[in-house]
Each structure stands twice: as structure tokens, then as C-alpha cells.
Design a protein around this nucleic acid. Structure first.
Lengths: 358, 358
DNA sequence: CTGTTAGCGCCTTCAG
DNA sequence: CTGAAGGCGCTAACAG
């Protein structure tokens, strides 16, 4: 495990319980009585080796418990390691882990491995992790950019590292990008509520620092404005970066003298917070009128909770991103592509609640 | 990204848009007019370098856009890469991604990075991925073993690679292990239902190939038997490896002439399946008696759905596993440890439903 | 079919 | 405080 910076952990005991040194290719070659290169050829399934020699090398490798050192091989080959890095907000968020799962699936069979790192949506960590992965010579980098300063990403791109942006584009960075149809999805959500007769529609959104939050917010306001709703951002609330904050904002909105009759929640965490708020409200005031709700992002059990959502395929985003990364590695000169993953409205009940009469 | 086995993707174009070659330490040293070693010292923050020299090297590195090659550094240092591998069932399952998140958090600050690989609970893939990570010279391996054949793991342990088993021990493998208190948790679930007066209690469990499934099943039967319930495995159903199968099994159980009045679902996926089955049943026969339910594994929104569960801290499991891995790397001779993460019963309503009179 | 000669990029002795 | 030589384990040319 080597030493950890200041922690200084010994890589292997020098005396006593010394970690067994792994046999090298040279050892295998010696045991088989062949040259290094021949052993290498056999172990890499290259042609032009006599069957008998092949067997001898294989046996020697097996007897020694040989395991090739991919680090050394990558270095010798001069290119990058067969790793693809994924720098993301928080692996514990199902949205991100679904993407990771999609990337990993696409990488398989290409002999590539995924290496993930969580930023906790911290811009400084994002830069740090980007650099660390770059130092590890990953073959490509998939990033959900958090910060607004994309100098680090641009540096990597300039150095020839394929970088794919996912979920959010980066201003001034001309890279392959995979996003979902935020505006279309939000428009569908709003129109769905308007069609049910709602006019006082609220939005609870994430911090405006995030591009997706801004997109969704703008689309929300535009859709209401186009429908002729006056003062369309009257019920818009920003800054819900976690479920608790979202819950509070929803509670605030509903406590207004003239509260909204319908809500759109701009991502999965916010939807969860809103559901808690609605639950508390129902418990506290059983007579209160039901509030319509459409959530952005589908989530497990949304069907059991009858929550209408704007859904899309997160794993598909990952797959597309990985495919873009591989394509760019093969051809660094191709123009940057933008992939827009479609959304679809999934009515399940909560979005079909009509506004109270009057 | 290098070529992908049979896919043969060129690592970098030779002509035309050739990928810019990254500057090496030698280039930095040359530009700064110092030797390689001095440059190395500066970039590794080693002492004994004149301040002026230090600055000159730093400037040169910056100007060149130098980024150290961690692959080469690891090789030269001779030890392992600063990577920790995590071989797991399915990253898209929140249980596994919570563990991954915990591992990653513990690794941070030690200068270690997480590299994850999903087996899809496929034994062959598990061996393959274990070997691949070993070839990459990870400093340690955290594994949720799927297969019953642990020869591959034992080989790694013998080679001196710290291996930590998580969620399930491996028969005949003397390695550090982190598990949850399966038996205690299951006992608590059963006793909770018995205390509410249930006697006909069912269990829907995963495939018996999995150790956790067997543990939970045995504890379930034992708890019922101890309470004097005759024929305690009468309502036990195995093989629910996904939510759909679980739903079918629950539906079957409830269609019995004398159905169980309470159910225990042995993991999060099964609980979801059961909730769907119960939902369908309620929709189909509104008069049907409610069935009590306790689920093993907590899950998001369980509170909104009023589901009583046996919970525990999955991220903590990851943290503990990572800590064990680091400790063993530091001292290969310490005895293998078993960490048992406690469970706790979280009553939320579904487990407190009394049996129908009679 | 097989072996030899050079490195990949960096770090680790050990001398200045 | 600084540098020169050697090697980590493997692969890429070239010869034979």
C-alpha cells in the first residue's frame, strides 16, 4: 500500500514477515530456459512461438505463481494506463452511481477499468482529483464538473487527454459532453401541471452555481411565462442542495398566505425533501389541500409513492460518455460532440392532483 | 486509452493530430539547468534543496505544464501503486455504492485512490477482476466474495496482497473481514413480529449460494423454533435474487390457503419486491388483511413508506474495511481480524401491524 | 521461431 | 546542497 504522505506506512517489512516478492518475467523466462522476450510473447498470446516452448513458459509461470505487472507493462508501452477516470460529486448518490455503472459496463470488454473519485461537489477537490488521475495516466477522464473554473480541465485537454463532461458542460471547454434534456424535461413538467389547471406553480431548485439548476430554473420560468402566468418566479426557491434544505423551503412555500397549488422539485434529493415536507404537513394538518408534485429525476420506489417524475436513463448517460471517450482516444481530431439524453414524463398520481376549487 | 484487446484502438495518432507528448522530469531538469535528481527532489518536496534552485525548478515545471507520471514513480519505488481495489457485486445497488463511498472516504488523506470493478455477482468475473487488479499492483483489495471457490483470493493473500473481505467471509480464507450482525439482526426482526402476536411468519430470502442469505435464513428459523413455533420453515422461500422474483414469491406466499400474517424480507431488493406485491394485493383486494413486514437493510424513503427495517451503517462497513486494509499493509503479520457491524431495528409501522384476530 | 539491445519515466543508492 | 549511475519490470525494435 506504500506510504501515505505524512502517514508513512512501510510498503513492506524489510525483516520478519517480509511480503513475498512477486516473481518477475525474468524469473519465468529463466525457469523455462528461454529469453525474456519469448516469455513475454507467450504470456501476451503473441504468435510465432513453438507450441512446446509455449507450454514450457506457461508451466513455469504457473509454477511460480507469476502475475504480470501491468504498471510496468503500461510504462514500457509508453502510452497510458488502461484506466478511465470518473470524477464525480458523490458516489453515494444513486444518480452518480448509475452513471458510474453505465461507464463501467461500456468499458468492459475493451479491457479498460474504471477508477472513481468523489469530489463532494468541492471545486478544489475536483481539481486535485483531476490532477491525480492525470498523473496516473488514465486513458480518459469523465467528469461532472462542479467548479466554474475549468482551467484544470482545459490543461488536460490541451495535453491530449480525452475529457468527457457529463451532466454539465463547462464554459469555454470544447469537449465531448453528455447532458440530459433539462429544458425539455422541465417544460414537460410545467405543462403537465398547467394542463391540470394549476396556475400557482412553485419550483424548488438546487444552488444556482450548478448549470443544471440554472437550466431547469430558466426553463421553468419560461414555460410559465409563455403560458401567460404573471410573475412566474414568484414561487421559485433556490439553494436546496440537500434534502433537509429542500424540506424547509417547501414548508416555507406552503406557509405562504397564498401558497402554490403545485410544485416542481428540480432533482432527486429535493424531491425526497419535498415528500418529507408534504408528509409532515399532512400529519400536522389533515384537512390541508393536497399539493401537486412533479419531480425531476426518477428514483426507486417513486412508483410506490405515486410520485410523478421527469425520468431519463442515467446509466445510458454513462455508457454514452464512455463511448465518446473511447472514440476520442482513437481519433483525437474528431470534432467535439454533444449528446443530449431525452427525458420523459412519468405520470404516477402526484402530478395529476387538480388545484383546489377557487 | 491504448488498444482494447481485439478492438485495437490506436493509442495515439502517429501523424496529423498527434497527441502532445507530456514533458518529463528530464525536460524540467534541463530547462531549470539542474540534474534530474534535483528536479525530483523539488517536485517531491524533499529537503536539502536551495531555495533558489527550488524556485527555478518549480517555474520550469509550471512553464512546461509538467505532470509527474505516477505510473513510473510507482514502478521505480518498486512497491505497489497507490490504488486500493474494490471488487463488488453491482455498483448500482445502493448497498454496494454506500460501501464504496465509505472506503473512498477512509482512503482519502492517506494518498490512496479507489478503483472499483463490478462482478454482477458472477464468480468468473470475480476471479478475472481480482487478477486484473492484482496485476495493476493495487496496494490492497476489498472484496465482497460471490463465488465459493476462493482459490484466487488465497493466491493473492499468499503473494502478500492485503485482502479484506466485506459483507461475507470466504471459507478457508484467513483474511480480515467485515460483516454485519446478520443473526442478531434477523433475530431482532423475528422477535419484533412475535411480540406483536404473529405466529405465521414468512421469510423471503436471496439465493442460498450467498453466505448472508444462509445466515439470515438460519437465524430466522432458529428464532421461530426457539419461540416454539412449529414447522418454522413452513413459510420460508429462497432464491429471490431480484425484486421481480421477490414479488412473485410474496404473492405466492399470500395466496396460500393459510397465508403468513407477517413477512421478513432478507435484503433491500427483496423488500422492494415485497412492497410491490403488497401494493398489488391491496389494489386487487381492498378488503384483504394487512400483512406485517420487516425488511433487512434500510433504504432511502423507507420512512415515507412506513417500512420497519433492520438497519446498519453500510458506509461504516466500507470505512472499517479500508482501515483494516491499511493496517495490514503496514503490518502483514498481524492476526486476521473480524469486525462485526451492529444492526438495529427501526420500527416505522409496517412491523407493528398486529395479526388479524383468529 | 528466438534472442539482444534499448529504453519507458522515475527513484534510489552513493559519491561529490 | 547536488549529481551520476543503475535499476524497477516490461515491451519494442531489430537482428539472427
Amino acid at each position: 500500500m506504500a506510504d501515505g504522505g505524512e502517514t508513512a506506512v512501510a510498503p513492506a517489512r524489510t525483516e520478519g514477515g517480509r511480503r513475498a516478492r512477486r516473481p518477475t518475467l525474468a524469473a519465468v523466462a529463466a525457469r523455462a530456459g528461454v529469453s525474456l522476450k519469448t516469455a513475454s510473447r507467450v504470456l501476451n498470446d503473441e504468435p510465432n512461438v513453438a507450441a512446446a516452448t509455449r507450454d514450457r513458459v506457461r508451466t513455469a509461470a504457473h509454477d511460480l505463481g507469476f502475475r504480470r505487472n501491468a504498471v510496468a507493462a503500461d510504462l514500457a508501452r509508453g502510452g497510458s494506463s488502461r484506466l478511465v477516470g470518473f470524477v464525480t460529486g458523490d458516489l453515494a448518490n444513486p444518480f452518480y452511481s448509475a452513471i458510474a455503472s453505465g461507464i463501467e459496463r461500456e468499458l468492459r470488454g475493451r479491457g479498460l477499468q474504471l477508477i472513481t473519485a468523489s469530489t463532494d461537489e468541492d471545486a478544489a477537490r475536483e481539481v486535485l482529483l483531476t490532477e491525480e488521475l492525470s498523473e496516473r495516466r488514465v486513458g480518459a477522464l469523465v467528469v461532472t464538473p462542479t467548479s466554474d473554473d475549468h482551467a484544470a480541465l482545459r490543461a488536460e485537454l490541451d495535453a491530449g487527454l480525452p475529457v468527457v463532461l457529463i451532466d454539465r458542460p463547462a464554459a469555454g471547454v470544447d469537449a465531448d459532453t453528455v447532458v440530459i434534456d433539462n429544458r425539455g424535461g422541465m417544460r414537460a413538467a410545467v405543462e403537465h401541471l398547467l394542463a391540470s389547471g394549476h396556475r400557482r406553480v412553485g419550483l424548488v431548485a438546487d444552488v444556482p452555481r450548478l448549470w443544471t439548476a440554472r437550466e431547469r430554473r430558466e426553463a421553468f420560468v419560461a414555460a410559465l411565462a409563455e403560458a401567460g402566468v404573471p410573475d412566474p418566479d414568484r414561487y421559485v426557491r433556490d439553494g436546496a442542495h440537500d434534502a433537509d434544505r429542500a424540506r424547509d423551503l417547501v414548508t416555507e412555500l406552503l406557509a405562504l398566505p397564498q401558497p402554490p397549488t403545485a410544485l416542481v422539485t428540480a432533482n432527486n434529493k429535493i424531491t425526497v425533501g419535498a415528500l418529507h415536507a408534504l408528509r409532515e404537513r399532512r400529519d400536522g394538518a389533515p384537512g390541508a389541500a393536497a399539493v401537486a408534485l412533479v419531480g425531476f429525476d426518477d428514483f426507486e420506489l417513486a412508483d410506490l409513492l405515486d410520485v410523478t417524475v421527469v425520468g431519463y436513463d442515467a446509466a445510458e448517460m454513462g455508457r454514452r460518455a464512455a463511448a465518446l471517450a473511447v472514440a476520442r482516444a482513437a481519433d483525437p481530431d474528431r470534432p467535439a460532440q454533444l449528446v443530449v439524453v431525452p427525458t420523459r414524463l412519468v405520470p404516477r398520481g402526484s402530478g395529476e392532483v387538480p388545484p383546489p376549487a377557487g
